[in-house]
């Protein structure tokens, strides 16, 4: 498994339960989309910086986490400047940067286990209607979040290997080995989950269920 973005800590944000944090994030993100006033957005951005720093993580580290998002934001901002106008570009960049920081603050202070638990609760009503299995649905969403950095990591590894063999960076030559490698890793992960006794009961076909559950490795 890959390292989660969550960092242990005792900051105020760490101590708030996951559900209110996620609800707050959804509300903030929604409200910010209806704000166009640059000064208000600048204030939101400043607030987001304070909130992100309050988790105890240094700005340098936060910057490293959000480097990818920053590149996308820069491209978006330049394009908006060119296609629409300066004030719009500033508003768009401030809004998205504030949301990204708030979202990252939640991610940094919420463990995967907490997130899964909240998702299970959200999916609960659908389960009672017989639409889905809450535990499995929550696991799927959490796994997806953990797979994103894994894909980036594999992409970098393949690109380095190709560069070492003197190959140019070609998207198609990257896509095929990347897909194959992450599919293989996802199947290995599924087997590891099965070996640890998930799901607790039910529709697992063909897998031995009497294996004593071992505590998951850290």
């Amino acid at each position: 498994m890959i390292a989660a973005l969550a960092r242990p800590g005792t900051s105020p944000l760490h101590r708030i339960a996951a559900a209110p944090k996620l609800a707050g994030l959804a509300i903030v993100a929604t409200v910010l989309f209806f704000v166009d006033e640059p000064r208000l957005l600048a204030a939101a951005f400043a607030a987001a910086l304070v909130v992100a720093r309050s988790t105890g993580t240094r700005f340098a580290e936060i910057g490293r986490d959000l480097r990818g998002a920053a590149v996308v934001l820069a491209v978006l901002g330049l394009a908006d400047w060119w296609l629409i106008d300066g004030p719009t570009a500033i508003a768009v960049v401030l809004r998205l940067a504030a949301i990204a920081l708030f979202a990252h603050a939640v991610t940094m202070t919420t463990s995967t286990a907490e997130l899964t638990e909240v998702l299970e609760r959200i999916f609960g009503p659908a389960e009672r209607l017989g639409l889905l299995d809450a535990a499995r649905a929550a696991l799927t969403v959490t796994l997806a979040l953990r797979f994103v950095p894994l894909i980036v990591e594999e992409a970098n590894a393949i690109r380095e290997a190709q560069a070492a063999r003197g190959l140019d960076a070609s998207p198609l030559a990257l896509a095929v080995p990347l897909m194959v490698r992450v599919i293989v890793r996802s199947e290995a992960l599924a087997d590891a989950i099965d070996a640890r006794g998930f799901p607790p009961e039910g529709a697992r076909r063909g897998a031995a269920r009497h294996i004593p559950a071992r505590p998951p490795s850290p």
Binding site: R136, T140, R146, L150, I183
Partner: peptide, 19 residues
Amino acid sequence: MTTRDISLVALMAAVIVAL
């Protein structure tokens, strides 16, 4: 859905996000 299905579904969701 088996655990492999879950894992593959999560993976393709992550591919969409990564793209």
